[in-house]
Amino acid sequence: MIRVQRAAFDPAEEIAALVGANRRIGGVVSFVGLVREMAEGGAIAAMTLEHYPGMTERQLEAVVAEAEARWPLDACLIVHRYGRLEPGERIVLAAVASSHRDAAFDACRFLVDWLKTKAPFWKLEEGPAGARWVAEKAEDQAAAARWAQK
């Protein structure tokens, strides 16, 4: 399951809803991404996340489908926000529920690494020198590439 939204989310509520009444689940691994105060150009006041409505959802669904194909998962969730966000705010939640922890840990990391390079989002940071679009990071490509081979 995926959601792209402007509104804030509550990780505890999201995880409770993800697990629901499924008693096969032995563990949930989640990742919560926050807006960092410090960016490459110095401290930022805020960032604005732009996205491509339609394609963003399709790409996130594809990332979830890939995780479900690679690991035995009971439930999988990505919530990604867009719009203007200030330091400390939550941007993204990836949560994976499985019978066993190994699959959940691996799949959660996979979701985050892959969504960073596949989902069409772009960050505009508001720093001391004005607003600047964030450039792609080589280490993000490398992190995603680690998962290319099963």
């Binding site: 991404g33 926050l34 807006v35 960092r36 996340l49 996205h51 491509y52 339609g54 394609m55 399709r58 990604h80 941007i91 993204v92 985050v112 969504l115 960073k116 390079t117 596949k118 989902a119 069409p120 989002f121 772009w122 960050k123 679009w133 964030v134 450039a135 792609e136 990071k137 993000d140």
Partner: peptide, 29 residues
Amino acid sequence: AVNQEYARAEDKVAPGDEVALFPPVTGGV
């Protein structure tokens, strides 16, 4: 992206397509 799927230089385009042009993505954190 052509019709909301990533496309390469040699991929076909047609008059009814939706084509999006953008820099490398920088989502997540």
